[in-house]
Write a protein that binds this DNA or RNA. Sequence first.
DNA 1: ACAACTTGTTCACTTAAGTTAAGAAATGAA
DNA 2: TTCATTTCTTAACTTAAGTGAACAAGTTGT
Lengths: 193, 193
Amino acid sequence: MQDILFDFISKYITLTEDEKNAILSVDIFRSVKKGTVLLKEGQSSKDSYFVLKGCIRTYYDLDGEEKTTGFYTEMEALTPPCVISKTPSEYYISCVEDTILTVSNSDMEEEVNAKFPRFETMCKILSEQLLAKERINFDEFKTSSPEQRYLNLLEKRPDLIQRVPQYQLASYLGMKPESLSRIRARITEKNKG
Amino acid sequence: MQDILFDFISKYITLTEDEKNAILSVDIFRSVKKGTVLLKEGQSSKDSYFVLKGCIRTYYDLDGEEKTTGFYTEMEALTPPCVISKTPSEYYISCVEDTILTVSNSDMEEEVNAKFPRFETMCKILSEQLLAKERINFDEFKTSSPEQRYLNLLEKRPDLIQRVPQYQLASYLGMKPESLSRIRARITEKNKG
DNA sequence: ACAACTTGTTCACTTAAGTTAAGAAATGAA
DNA sequence: TTCATTTCTTAACTTAAGTGAACAAGTTGT
């Protein structure tokens, strides 16, 4: 199970056995049931997550309405903004599926950094890459129509469309469930004719 | 002029005189005229920018149409995705105003890192913060209507509305210039009635 | 097996954004 | 200053998404 974590890290730096042990000595592997809420709105937290298996989702509650803004699946890491800003969380995180993940905080990170400083270099590279990727995603979102965004998701993360309820996908794509339903109908219609 | 740079850095770490000199010895300050194109689509580049004074903008050319996706003003840093991915750039960067900025690349960064390792820590923290901020921006964009997005920009970055042409703002807000014009008319109408 | 709840689809209707085109206003260059 | 270009606004029309409601299908718990 921890192999997934080391596979991930090996994309950035090569770990020695000692370094692997340094990580294992602090990392907490956790198994959470579908529907479990990991973080609530208004809650303060220092925890970052790394998904080994399953899917977690971030969503806001705007006047009683759920607005889903992110999905994190295998090999994806999430440090909620509230951890960075040190303010209460503005959103919820919950598990879309039964999920296995690691939970860590900055103290643990420092502990690992102390044992091998290359870890910090890796974290820097990782967050630079995530930032670049996030900006490209945002750019694509801004420059395309709801229909194009759905088609784009279909291409980039087809798994999500299978494993996540439509109403969550809809707000993730910036539209209402009814619109998504219509778009899907329109597309299958096109493919027929 | 370089005070702006040191003011910025001082938000993250306190610099000694030696460290300031280490930065000045590699950093390139550059003055660019309004309209200058810093990066072209298809071009490969290793340069990161930090705006000291002025405004630069990122935009795509999609079938001859300009799609603006970002503005970077005083105290804002931009490392184009092509620098991270090491592939040709998918977008253009140009100057909205006469601009003073620093241009640096990863070699220079390493040079500074070698002289004081705390610089790397700062870069890590910075990009983690930028990532958190970018995600919140994206979330806000996804969960709001074009009109709300305009109002949000009016609140968060009122300067942009003054210093940037409307048609660039429009695509930055994910809409057509005509729509932005209508939205503005609708809002001033509301404020009257 | 049944009721209760969740999820997805459909429909009729409303609202807002996209499109096309024309003209006004601002900007810049000669 | 004048002319040309760029930028912004307006209007009529088209298209697509939002809204509210009803219903069907699927799931969960008892």
